[in-house]
Design a protein around this nucleic acid. Structure first.
Lengths: 245, 245
DNA sequence: GTCAATGGTTTGTCCGGACAATCGAACTTC
DNA sequence: GAAGTTCGATTGTCCGGACAAACCATTGAC
């Protein structure tokens, strides 16, 4: 059976975007089965009353997402399943929420401190200048999962503890009009110190998963620097990544 | 000063690709400074004797790489440094080599075994059917860094230990005509068992960084499943990731 | 002085067409 | 029967143009 596709020209949503969303939904719902051909672009464009560049733009966005593969002389195929979502810059809060865990946050510290050398270098501010410092404990099912220590440059955001307990830091930043662009991350492991162990309810010396991250907005400004430690017994990073052709 | 750009129409290399490479090199060499405008697309197209779509395609590829940011009514800006390379599907071997370490590999096991339930599920083959099993120890500066255990479906690749000691697994796969497409990864941490500790030269109970990965080619076929353990004292994952707009 | 309207600049979207490069299969030849 | 050849199908690249949408600075009104 041929797929039911249509676009609404009176909508402000770009035509290529309407099409790519419909195709993505069709793949998600199994109406386009893995390995099946998509039909050639010219015919598809004609059927929808669109031009080929518009159809190509829609298809290209799904190729970039890893859902489709194009082959010259063959056609465009749906990738054989397994592909879910590529790695995104997501907050732990969103991850836990998406996984059906009910995340909780306890704000331990929310204050302004002078920047240490490390923090100053990461945020590109003068050493000793004021920066926000937020320490949080993240729980799932009322059990500690991670200890999060974050630094933010001043003047970016009003951080209220009540908001921090209700949602994740990234959501607050986005809501404040900051457009996140990229992040540098370092993931490692180490043995828990006495203090860390106690905070997370682990024995001393237990393996911890650690992450350091600096996040930049689209002007290249560092907007956040964080040092996180996760209970290795309760958390691991799961992600999917694509090969850039 | 205006940037020196030119394209060679007699070259088989696509024009947009020639342009994007020159722009990327200019950014890399600091000829295009962070924050600077790129000049509007129409003028740039005219200067190079190209059409605007071609120039846009070149710019778009750099936007996708996170090197440029476009703003309607403003122009296209070079992102304020800090951006190096986004996360790629790279092998540990390449990572170490790029970091100037001289990686070494010792092949501990290279054989065919019946697939366990876990391996069979990951590779989508029948439990108990034959799969390749490769165990390697990866060293840098003659010190163990990681223990790598990989499984491959049969018939894909002839794995010779001598080749495995000379280069990384991914390079061998690419050289065999396999086009890697995506991978699912899980990164965690745990305490070393006695066997693991001895293999890596760590004390028992030392924190290890662990990674499990299944890699798929562009037909969606699983082509590799691996379980890796890294010495946390000597290795951590460093990467950069972009926010998809 | 502050706020709103205006206009120019730049990217975003979309069109229709043209030719080249590549793939796979059918066909031919030895 | 096997190997090389041709041919149709499909995506890749590129062009030139048109209008819309968003941003910024200037101007104007109160």
């Amino acid at each position: 059976m041929t797929l039911q596709l249509s676009v609404d020209r009176s909508s402000p949503v770009p035509l290529y975007f309407q099409l790519s969303q419909q195709l993505e939904a069709a793949i998600e719902h199994g109406e386009l089965t893995p390995g099946s051909l998509l039909g050639n672009e010219i015919e598809l464009a004609g059927r929808l009353g669109l031009s080929r560049p518009t159809v190509r733009q829609a298809i290209q966005s799904l190729v970039d997402k890893g859902l489709l593969v194009r082959r010259r002389g063959v056609g465009t195929q749906v990738v054989h399943s397994q592909v879910k979502r590529p790695l995104e810059l997501s907050s732990l809060y969103d991850d836990l929420e998406a996984a059906g865990q009910r995340p909780e946050t306890r704000v331990l510290v929310n204050t302004v401190v002078p920047a240490s050398a490390e923090v100053a270098a990461a945020l590109a501010v003068a050493e000793g200048s004021d920066v926000h410092r937020v320490e949080r404990l993240r729980l799932a099912h009322s059990e500690p999962v991670a200890y999060l220590c974050n630094y933010l440059p001043p003047g970016l955001l009003d951080l209220e503890s009540s908001q921090l307990e209700a949602t994740g830091l990234y959501r607050l930043m986005r809501a404040a009009g900051i457009t996140l662009h990229s992040a540098r991350q370092s993931v490692g492991a180490r043995a828990a110190t006495v203090v860390e162990a106690e905070r997370l309810g682990e024995p001393e010396g237990a393996p911890l998963l650690t992450m350091q991250r600096t996040t930049f907005d689209d002007t290249g400004r560092a907007v956040e620097f964080g040092t996180h430690t996760y209970r290795a017994s309760r958390y691991s990073f799961e992600f999917q990544l694509l090969v850039r052709p």
